[in-house]
Design a protein around this nucleic acid. Structure first.
Lengths: 225, 225
DNA sequence: TTAAGATTTAAGATAGATTAAAGGACAAAT
DNA sequence: ATTTGTCCTTTAATCTATCTTAAATCTTAA
């Protein structure tokens, strides 16, 4: 499982550093922005699992940032603020904040609220899946459908298909595929790969003699479309 | 649109009255329970949109009530408590509390947090029973029927079936199932799982040799349909 | 055209899955 | 306190699916 990514938008370097240390030691990947403009840009380019937003930013009110984010960003946003003012808390929550903590905050509590917020994300989210023509690969449920029918793939076949699907359009060398699927010791066992490409094609291709999904790049490897 | 229903579980009459007045004037329908037993019963009979749960109940610890509710209730639960103790807050949030407010709380803030919690609810659906083909699982009464006949399942069998039912269509790895049912120390005891899948199949499958509900994903785990 | 590369098939080996059954822990009933 | 019965754990035998390997056949690129 990958690390959950958290974006901190706060202008105080000490706070950012404190959060960075605590979050990274709890296995989160941390991104940082020191003003509203930068924060919105970063969130847009690379949407994180959760945003920690300070209300007191230099270039724009945090409430405005929150509203702007909420026009398109629907994961968790937790407000951090020195303002312990009822009106601000109410306004932030009504504008779609997931939670509100006043500084100084207790670290364990922040972590618990982050876990709670991320947990909630995961159930709300629509499942991530990939559709390639007649194929539909569901990464969460670990199932593959072709024309709505569930395909019966072995563990190795599924792993191979997953690798292909995550590198759609890219030529993968035999060596690379062998290393990823069978481990670093198997990079010369090209034969394994050929057999498994065979069985996979039998299951996912309409016409085995003219494969549309797994394309052979002779002398190099395979490409998935 | 109907009024959203809120269940208050708190033993202090003054607090209940205060909440009742405030919530009803904000267009919520309010239900009240003065102890854990009554609260759980009311929640089961008539699942509300949100539960306000006091941690200091006379008959049972609020943490236990929370855990019990969370086995089947997946809408919002906001904790109200006089305890402003970091450990309790963390524990409650990790047990699935949506939010945590310490008494005395500010009324407008509570209302904002309630709005926020209810807003988040609307995407995920609560259901107290699940029908899968000839199977009918009732999460509240913890009973399972097949073709209208009540099946006699042991505690472990029921827990396993519950886990499967809540992850319908998804492949669950052996490790994950073992962790969920037998706890974090049992992740290598694949054999337990196999035995229990065997006994479960005997009870829920029409034809044991061609299981329709619990599908084996060899080398990976099981999938429930 | 020819050598290297790719596919296909099938059989043996291995890891994984099912099933039955016995012993132990525990709770309910006597 | 003893018995009874249920459920859980553990072991072992058997069965099955999957992986590996080799060999025959086909395709591609120089």
């Amino acid at each position: 499982m990958n690390k959950a990514e958290i974006l901190i938008i706060d202008d105080e370097p000490q706070i950012r550093k404190l959060l960075e240390i605590n979050l990274e030691s709890n296995n989160y990947k941390v991104w940082q922005a020191e003003n509203a403009k930068e924060g919105i840009l970063m969130a847009a380019n690379h949407p994180p699992e959760l945003i920690l937003l300070d209300l007191g930013l230099p270039d724009k009110s945090g409430h405005e940032v929150l509203k702007e984010l909420r026009t398109w960003y629907n994961k968790s946003i937790i407000i951090l603020s020195v303002i312990n003012n009822e009106k601000d808390i109410v306004q932030a929550l009504d504008n779609g904040a997931t939670d509100y903590l006043t500084k100084p905050f207790r670290n364990a509590e922040l972590l618990a609220r982050i876990r709670s917020a991320i947990r909630r994300n995961q159930t709300d989210n629509t499942e991530s899946k990939k559709v390639c023509g007649d194929l539909e690969i569901d990464f969460v449920s670990r199932t593959v459908k072709r024309n709505q029918e569930i395909l019966k793939l072995t563990a190795t076949e599924y792993n191979l298909l997953l690798l292909f699907a995550k590198n759609e359009g890219r030529v993968l060398t035999h060596q690379y595929i062998l290393k990823e699927i069978w481990g670093i010791g198997a990079q010369l066992e090209t034969q394994y790969l050929r057999v498994f490409v065979g069985t996979l094609r039998k299951k996912i291709e309409q016409n085995q003699n003219q494969p549309l999904h797994i394309i052979t790049e002779s002398g190099v490897g395979y490409r998935f479309e």
